[in-house]
Write a protein that binds this DNA or RNA. Structure first.
Lengths: 208, 208
DNA sequence: CAGTTGGGTGAACAGACGTACACCGAAAAG
DNA sequence: CTTTTCGGTGTACGTCTGTTCACCCAACTG
C-alpha cells in the first residue's frame, strides 16, 4: 500500500524534473512513464490524465509557497530588519523547493487556463494576507483600503520578480547580488509607501 | 515574389494565434500549416524549423516592444504627468500588439532556453536605457550608479507586471483599474526612490 | 493457508508528429 | 514564346502520442 504512494511520488518528481526544461503542456505521459521506469499504462493507476497530474503539482507547489509565506510572517522579529529576513527566507525556500517554485513561475503564464487561474488566485490571496499584515504596521493608518491593496500588489509583484530572478541566477555570486538588489528595492518601496499619503495629506507623518 | 511574403506573414500570424492558447513549444508544425491552409511540407519553404519560426517571432515582437519604448521616451512632455502618459502608452501598445506582448510574456519564462535568454537580454537593455534617462532627472544626483540600476530594474519589473495584468484583464473596467493601480504604484515608487539616498545622507533633498 | 485486491505488464490500436522525395503549375526571366 | 525558377502538392516513411484490454503476480484480507 505504500508502494503506490512511492510510485506516485516518483511520477510527480519525474514531471517536475521534465518540467524544468519545457512547459508542462509539452510533457507527454510516455516521457513521464519512461522517466519513472514504469510502462505507460501504469500511469493511469495514479492519475486520470496529464492535466490531473498538473493539478496535483499545483497543489503540492502551493504547499511549498504557503510554507514560505508562513515562515516570512512569523520570522523572528529580533533578527533585525524585516526586509533582510524576508528576502533571506524567500531565497532559502526558492532554493530548497526549486522545482515547485519553477513550476509555479512557468505555469503562471504558460500553463492551461485552469492552472493559470488557480495560480493567480493563490497569489492574490497572498496579497490580501500581506495587506492585513501591513495594516498593523505603525505609520500606515493614513492609507485608504485601496492604497493598502495597491502597496501589497506592488510588494508581491516585486517578490515574484525576485523569485524568478533567483531561479534564473547562473552563479551564487549572481544570486547574492539579486538578493542585495531585492533588499534595496523593498526598502525603497517602503520609503515610498510610507511617504505616500502623508505626502498628499500634509507632509507630516505624525499629523492626526 | 510577394506571394512568398504573404504566406510567410500568414505563418507568423498563425503561430501567434495558436500561441495564444498554449506555449509555442507545444505548437506543432502541422497545426500551423493547417491553420495557414498549406500542406505541412510547404512550411519548409519559409522556415527551417519551429524554432526558427520562434526566433522570427521574437524579432518582430521586439520591434513592437521597442516601438513602445520609443513612444514612452519621446512622449509629449506637455501632457502633464510622465507617469500618466507612460502607463497610457504602455496600455495602448499592449492592446494594439496584443499577440506580440503575449508572446513575449509567455516565452520569457516558458520558451526554449535560447529564446528566454534573448528576451531577458532585451529587457535588460530597456533597463539600461531607462537608467540613462533617469540620470537626467532633477534630484537624482545623489544616487550611486548601482542605485540607478536598481531603481530601473524595479520600475521595469513593475511595468512588466502591469503589462501581464493588462493581458489578463477580463473586462475594460478591470483594465482601467489595473492602469489606475499601475499609476499609483509608479508614483509611490518614485517617491520612495527620490527619498532614498537623501534619507541615508541627511533627510534633506536640497542638501549639497 | 486460500482468496481477493490492485499496481504493474505487454500487445495493439488509431492518430498525429517531423521529414524526405518526386512532382506540378504559375509567375518571372530570357 | 520558350525556359527557368520556386512556392505549393501528395505520398510515404518511421516514430511518438494517448488509450483500450486482457493478463500477471506481489501483497494484503479472511
Amino acid at each position: 500500500m505504500e508502494r503506490k504512494e512511492r510510485t506516485r511520488r516518483a511520477i510527480l518528481d519525474a514531471a517536475l524534473s521534465l518540467g524544468e526544461e519545457s512547459s508542462l503542456g509539452a510533457v507527454s505521459l510516455r516521457q513521464v512513464a519512461k522517466e519513472v521506469g514504469i510502462v505507460p499504462t501504469a500511469f493511469y493507476r495514479h492519475f486520470d490524465s496529464i492535466e490531473a497530474l498538473g493539478m496535483a503539482l499545483v497543489d503540492e507547489s502551493f504547499v511549498s509557497l504557503r510554507a514560505m509565506l508562513r515562515d516570512v510572517r512569523q520570522a523572528d522579529p529580533t533578527y533585525g530588519d524585516i526586509v533582510d529576513g524576508s528576502v533571506a527566507i524567500l531565497a532559502q525556500h526558492v532554493h530548497d523547493q526549486r522545482a515547485h517554485f519553477l513550476f509555479i513561475a512557468r505555469e503562471r503564464v504558460a500553463g492551461p487556463t485552469l492552472v493559470r487561474e488557480r495560480i493567480r488566485h493563490e497569489i492574490e490571496l497572498a496579497e490580501r494576507e500581506l495587506a492585513t499584515d501591513l495594516a498593523l504596521m505603525p505609520g500606515v493608518e493614513v492609507w485608504t483600503a485601496e492604497d493598502l491593496q495597491i502597496v501589497s500588489n506592488l510588494i508581491v509583484n516585486a517578490m515574484v520578480s525576485t523569485a524568478e530572478a533567483i531561479l534564473n541566477a547562473r552563479s551564487p555570486d549572481a544570486e547574492a547580488e539579486i538578493q542585495h538588489r531585492s533588499r534595496t528595492q523593498l526598502r525603497m518601496l517602503l520609503v515610498g509607501a510610507l511617504n505616500w499619503r502623508s505626502d498628499k495629506a500634509g507632509r507630516s507623518p505624525e499629523g492626526s
